[in-house]
């Protein structure tokens, strides 16, 4: 399956990554190469094989329902380009 420039542009837009138009052909080609590799993997017959989700047999780690985190407003806001009165301040987004 080959990816055209339009699809590459759409994927970039959905990922909010700006791609200059002249770079789209190369990007499309890269995507196509990745999908080509996946297609190759698809040739392996895995009928009746349980999907392997972990290299070692592991159980999903769980926590107890206890509050152990938070209370760090300053740290949370430290990297924000703009923060006011304890909130992140962002350009207006309203429907």
């Amino acid at each position: 399956m080959s990816i055209d420039e339009g699809t590459a542009a759409r994927v970039a837009k959905l990922a909010r990554i700006q791609v200059a138009p002249e770079r789209l052909p190369a990007l499309a080609e890269e995507f196509s190469a990745i999908l080509g590799f996946i297609e190759q993997l698809n040739e392996v017959d895995v009928d009746g094989v349980e999907p392997m989700v972990s290299v070692t047999p592991m159980r999903l780690k769980r926590r107890e329902d206890v509050v152990t985190d938070g209370g760090q407003q300053k740290a949370v806001l430290a990297n924000a380009p703009d923060a006011r009165e304890g909130f992140f301040a962002v350009p207006k987004v309203v429907e």
């Binding site: 509050v67 407003q73 992140f88």
Partner: peptide, 23 residues
């Protein structure tokens, strides 16, 4: 519940903004 789905921050309603927030 007391804590969030994937973090240990509190679910308490009406707290100071951004105070019940883990990284």
């Amino acid at each position: 519940t007391k804590a969030k789905l994937f973090s240990g921050a509190s679910t308490q309603f009406g707290a100071e903004p951004n105070s019940n927030v883990s990284f």
